[in-house]
């Protein structure tokens, strides 16, 4: 609890608000992870935590250390950039793995959802 008492009131209140906002969004995302019924709906849930949640908490951290040390401390930007670049990659890989597994096991659960305007009309009628 060393440095927090030195924070001016406006910074403390802003940090408190951003922290509550970020952790609330992250919690909502994981509640969605529990509540949603199918895998493809659940893929959307963690992005709430990685965009809004992580963004708000990282801004709070940057604000806190910048005010405490009275110089801009921006290295949290690295985590922001890293998280925003990597989350889409993992989620895309997961979605593709899921679609691949669905196709090999249940043959056409995705393709019936897509309907007749499928991505690769000619191709997967041959694959079945």
């Amino acid at each position: 609890m060393s440095g927090l008492h030195d924070l001016p009131a406006w910074a403390a209140l802003a940090i408190a608000f951003l922290l509550l906002l970020g952790s609330g969004l992250t919690l909502l995302g994981t509640i969605g992870l529990v509540r949603f019924k199918t895998f493809y709906e659940r893929v959307h849930a963690p992005t709430l935590g990685t965009t809004g949640g992580a963004g708000a908490i990282l801004i709070a951290s940057m604000l806190c250390f910048s005010v405490l040390q009275s110089r801009p401390v921006l290295h949290e930007l690295l985590i922001t950039v890293f998280v925003t670049v990597t989350t889409p990659v993992t989620l895309m890989l997961l979605a593709r793995a899921a679609i691949y597994r669905d196709r090999t096991e249940k043959a056409d659960s995705v393709d019936t959802l897509v309907g007749d305007r499928g991505v690769n009309d000619g191709e997967h009628s041959a694959r079945r």
Binding site: L4, R42, P46, T50, A54, A60, V83, R101
Partner: peptide, 29 residues
């Protein structure tokens, strides 16, 4: 129920753990 759901859970738990560590960092300055 399937393996891809579990992996999605692992990804979410990593992100939450990272954010939790950041809040500890703010608390301890």
């Amino acid at each position: 129920p399937r393996a891809q759901d579990r992996v999605l859970g692992v990804d979410a738990i990593y992100v939450c753990g990272m954010l939790l560590i950041l809040t500890f960092g703010i608390r301890n300055g």
